[in-house]
Design a protein around this nucleic acid. Sequence first.
DNA 1: AATGAATGAGGCTTCATTCAT
DNA 2: TATGAATGAAGCCTCATTCAT
Lengths: 192, 192, 192, 192
Amino acid sequence: MSRKEQKEKTRRRILSSAFELFKEQGYLKCNTADIALRAGTAHGTLFLHFGTKEQLLFECIEERLIDISNRLSHAARDAENLESMLRIYLHHIGNELEFETMIAREMPLLPVSLQRKIMAIRSGIAADFYQVLEWEMENGTIRHVDPAMALNFWFGTLNYYLANQALFAGDGNIIETSGNQLISYFIQSLRR
Amino acid sequence: MSRKEQKEKTRRRILSSAFELFKEQGYLKCNTADIALRAGTAHGTLFLHFGTKEQLLFECIEERLIDISNRLSHAARDAENLESMLRIYLHHIGNELEFETMIAREMPLLPVSLQRKIMAIRSGIAADFYQVLEWEMENGTIRHVDPAMALNFWFGTLNYYLANQALFAGDGNIIETSGNQLISYFIQSLRR
Amino acid sequence: MSRKEQKEKTRRRILSSAFELFKEQGYLKCNTADIALRAGTAHGTLFLHFGTKEQLLFECIEERLIDISNRLSHAARDAENLESMLRIYLHHIGNELEFETMIAREMPLLPVSLQRKIMAIRSGIAADFYQVLEWEMENGTIRHVDPAMALNFWFGTLNYYLANQALFAGDGNIIETSGNQLISYFIQSLRR
Amino acid sequence: MSRKEQKEKTRRRILSSAFELFKEQGYLKCNTADIALRAGTAHGTLFLHFGTKEQLLFECIEERLIDISNRLSHAARDAENLESMLRIYLHHIGNELEFETMIAREMPLLPVSLQRKIMAIRSGIAADFYQVLEWEMENGTIRHVDPAMALNFWFGTLNYYLANQALFAGDGNIIETSGNQLISYFIQSLRR
DNA sequence: AATGAATGAGGCTTCATTCAT
DNA sequence: TATGAATGAAGCCTCATTCAT
């Protein structure tokens, strides 16, 4: 294996152990030494690859978000309408529940620059939704509303549920518990 | 009596300097020594009055929330309809913007027990909204919806705006910037 | 009730709550605020009466030791021989087990001056033993030994059992568990 | 290899400065910052190597006890009888007088789990004594006694002397002052 | 490129004692 | 005489980051 490959492998190990610990304990509460430990590398190596803990978080998030984003966009092509799109979206959130929960909880405490980067990555998903919304509006299947506001209500409420999951669902899976309600209420609020 | 007053005064100084620093820096990032310093007391005095940093936060929150809650409930009596109630609510949030922002941001990271206490205090406000919603539904001025879900969308979205204020409004006042939009979208979504 | 009586009453309340807490938690681990709290007096009052925590300990010990010492000396008059005397002694220790345990554990960490005071009070008990030992030696019921050394073995071993009670008896009562063994071994070692 | 050596060196510096301070001031009264200072390392380094103050104490004790234990066991092989064994033992105690004094004084105040560990390490020494005692009993050179009790009297009394050394010997060396007396009394008490 | 020992500032909390009332 | 609020030094421990190897 070449030097470059070796390096990449180390990088990936750190990234994935960071991902695990961020999910398990949250970004603020987990520490870099444990991340390196679980990655099987030296503590210092982590900083060699990522410079700071924050940068590690960003790259961790970036990768995952882009991945989720892509898978979601891909799945969204099959969505015939808003409802199936919402369903697909919640399904993906449910699959990455711990990760999405962490982001919902900790993003507001991160530096704004980082928040912006996260939002930028997510804008693709928003665009997909946007399109479906407009399409349904044109078809007359939903009311004419400001699509941006509609999405803020959707993402906002979902975020709220994720961030405060402990209150809404205890240890349960908030998507399983409340996903259908969220979808049906949201759809209903857009009906004519 | 003077002794008691003196103590109460100290308590209030700590409470209000904590309140300021929590708002300025957030609960997690500010430290107890600075709070005591700004309050003009010894560091130890803070723990004499509040025991732990967390308890200080709770009492800080409790007082404010109860106050806001009361003022809001009082104002809500004059509300003839949902819209004026939402307006009153946002007005109060706007008055305590930094504080509400801090809560929106940091609550998900606090111990669940503390989260519950906060929710318990806020339940009074929710009840007021609940009543107005049901009243309007009976009157036929809004559609028949699950009022609990409606409120979750309202509070959820608002929370989302507050927590991620930096993205939505930069340094501006998110209530001034987006308050009307939020209200009108929410009302609209409830229209028949 | 006169001023003086009132003062004495306060003093006694502090003394007895200190006694309780010293037994329950040990001198080093318990704190003066709790003592005052349990005594139902102000924290400052404690220092008015005793000056320092250490002085409080001393007066607390002094009173009890003198009391125990007296009762013991009194009981010792009825002792016909060494064995009954040892038995009486262990009985008294057993009655004040927590207190004696605390002294055994914490005395070596106290200022030497305080240690000396404690020893001085206890010297009366030692003298009683001394007498019985010599008497039995004269009678020929036990061997001729250095009575001072014999007593050191007795008190030393007993102290060792008390101080390390957790290891020897867990939560049980070390006197009940091992008292008879101690006596019989000690007696046996003095037989001709 | 140099890295490992360097680390070991630091570890040893901390260990030995801790050892010194524990002896000089006692475990409870000395503080970790001073230990690090004397070791010439940063305060945090201490916790890197030992985790907690208590663990530092344990490792400090463990090392010494095992060392003393080994040297003692080794020397015990040459002991032809109980007396020479006691002499060897006291000699070793005398060499580590401050350390043994600290243990005698502070062990009863340590967490029971730690006490047990200490006892476990010491059990080897006790076993050596046990053997000699039984051997002498078989040979008829000493009386038939419960060897466990005999050892408790020996170790108990010795502990008592060590813990309360200040009273028995002032600043002098208690082993030099009283060692012979202890041995001869103990031996005598086992004679037929 | 990787290591991992070392750093040291920073954080929360405790508590015997004082002193103004 | 009694109060009890206030003090502030002291204590243990954490952790992102650096740098010599």
